[in-house]
Amino acid sequence: MENRRITDHPILDFSEGEVIPFTFDGKPMEGRSGDTIASALHANGVKVLGYHFKTKRPRGFYCAIGNCSSCLMVVNGQSNVRTCTEPLLPGMKVETQIDRGVPDDV
């Protein structure tokens, strides 16, 4: 798989962060401290975060700063989480969202 993490940058210093384990649709993956859910998925080569409930077209993030809501996913059973700004936490269960979302206690 292509390595998307930048290790040597002329201006910025990206130190190796702590490893944060999580799962994406049941598959174990690793992020780094400082990651959001979407950035960790991106580092793992995941581009499709969901399928639109109406058009069924694949969705990825667009703005990455919490404006556009193109990155909504199901996290630990809760729908409609803005994954581009939500920090990644150890053990998170991240899933592709394919509908408008359901209440998490149903």
Partner: peptide, 10 residues
Amino acid sequence: VVICRCEGVT
């Protein structure tokens, strides 16, 4: 051509 990404309106 998708105009509204959230609601999937073309």
